[in-house]
Design a protein around this nucleic acid. Structure first.
Lengths: 149, 149
DNA sequence: TTTAATCCCAAGTAAAATGATTGGAATTCA
DNA sequence: TGAATTCCAATCATTTTACTTGGGATTAAA
């Protein structure tokens, strides 16, 4: 039940962009350094996020990436699903009709998978990048300490 | 975020044993047939469940497996964790100290992983095999139809 | 007492997924 | 013009997954 690095690195990168929201384009190299991710690999992930319209890019020298919209409009759910596809513990409870099982009408384990799926999606859809920024600021104030992420 | 077949097949097998709770030993071959699982593979899974004390076995002809305790005492959570290990979207939020990350004290993505982890565990720990049996009986009565699982 | 049915155990394996790396073209600012 | 960057496509090593194979040990029933 682990997320792959796609979802995990992707959320870190998006949170990094949220911290720098409004600062103009941020070079992928800097994100990769701060988040300790291979930059060529992160490039592939951010390309997916860009095609999905979650981030914008500026090409050329002094270019980089930025969030396409404000942190409060971007949920953890949309980020993770964009990178990982629909989040479900079993294929029989994704939306794809094709993966239906002939026992679906009376399968009780399917009911369990549905509950897990819904619970995870409720959590990740309820958290925005703005929420994460607020958590981050709280932690920084509490310890009276600055972390430069 | 999918479960592997370990957790998925394992829950099906345990539910099958729950349906036949009190009927004496059930041959693995029959469970495998009903649940459409490779029997040699299921053998490996049920060995894990047996070693964890969730099922008992009877060797020899007319032997088989049965739940070690009543369906109401066995949760989906214990079954899945026995087969899959601790359920967490990232290694940094399992209990294992070794997988701690040096950023853990101020990592905001970690907070997200914790919320997902807790939400999944709350769901699976709240469902027992007895609950699944009751759902199963409801479905059967509603449709006025018998499914022989 | 034999035989068939069953559990038990260990090793091997093909395919897929993961998590990158490699190499280079296109674009743009200074 | 050159350095910094994004963009794109292909390749690849490793790990994980989901089994398969093969055989030994135990026991009920004929």
């Amino acid at each position: 039940m682990k997320l792959s690095t796609k979802g995990r690195y992707g959320l870190k990168a998006m949170f990094d962009l949220a911290i720098h929201y409004g600062d103009g384009p941020i070079a992928l190299k800097h994100i990769a350094e701060r988040q300790e991710i291979s930059d060529h690999y992160l490039e592939q992930l951010i390309a997916i996020l860009r095609k999905a319209g979650l981030v914008k890019s500026v090409r050329g020298a002094q270019g980089g990436y930025m969030l396409a919209t404000a942190p409060k409009t971007i949920t953890v759910g949309i980020i993770i699903r964009t990178l990982e596809g629909p989040l479900a513990p079993s294929d029989c409870v994704t939306e794809e009709e094709s993966k239906a099982c002939k026992k679906a009408s009376y399968c009780v384990t399917k009911v369990v998978w549905e509950k897990i799926r819904d619970s995870v999606n409720d959590v990740i859809d309820s958290i925005t990048l703005q929420d994460m920024l607020e958590d981050y600021n709280k932690i920084q104030n509490k310890d009276n300490y600055m972390f430069y992420i």
